[in-house]
Design a protein around this nucleic acid. Structure first.
Lengths: 109, 109
DNA sequence: ACGGTATTTCTAGAATGTTCGAAATAGTTC
DNA sequence: GAACTATTTCGAACATTCTAGAAATACCGT
């Protein structure tokens, strides 16, 4: 993942409303959640939700599938994984992990 | 870490200029890097750099120590770790990891 | 304290983001 | 195709962010 791609994805998650949306979708698991249910759950204006979902879908963190009149939203796990990996990679310089670096911290996890 | 704290940190990293700054600092490792050297390396206006550093320091992702007239900047690894852990935790609902979830993906890493 | 280097604050303009109501569109059912 | 539900687009108000030059401040050495 390129720096600019990572940045737009981090920025997408870096808004409290969008992070709430994303977290709710992650917790919804495999089945995802309809836009309408998301709106009811988060209690925000439909237009606001649509606006933020557009951002999340635009950067690839969320995907949508239609079921009748309702749109089901899903988290895109591989994309999130790529983003986290990008952050983890940044702790390594020329193959050696910086002291106190992140990869080291996650060896046990 | 609370959602709002995670959001402001993600937002801090979600700007290309700040992500470049942060990445440069991570790569600088333990010894960190002076503000002046950062400016020279990244080729941005001193005031712009100062502005972004203030943001990164403000959310706790970067710390600064003085050495004479120069300010040395360091990444705050535990904070970054906390942020990544926050993201990883979000894939788990009530103890069970969502299928295809992130923690699972990082078991081997 | 003076001169020099390092960094921040001030100021301001352009650009972008957030929010929501109202109107419009997409799809389903009858 | 009319009525209905689900979602998006439009429009607008308001706030925030990004950038950088100029001025101000902080620290050191002499």
């Amino acid at each position: 993942m390129k720096l600019d791609d990572a940045a737009v994805r981090l920025e997408a998650l870096g808004n409290p409303t969008r992070l709430r949306i994303y977290r709710t979708l992650v917790r919804a698991g495999e089945e995802g959640m309809a836009v309408g249910k998301l709106q009811e759950r988060l209690d925000i204006a439909a237009s606001t939700l649509s606006h933020h979902l557009k951002t999340l879908v635009g950067v690839g963190l969320v995907t949508q599938t239609r079921e009748g009149t309702t749109l089901i939203c899903h988290t895109n796990y591989p994309m999130m994984r790529g983003l986290i990996e990008y952050m983890l990679e940044e702790c390594c310089v020329e193959g050696t992990c910086a002291p106190g670096g992140l990869a080291k911290l996650f060896k046990a996890a």
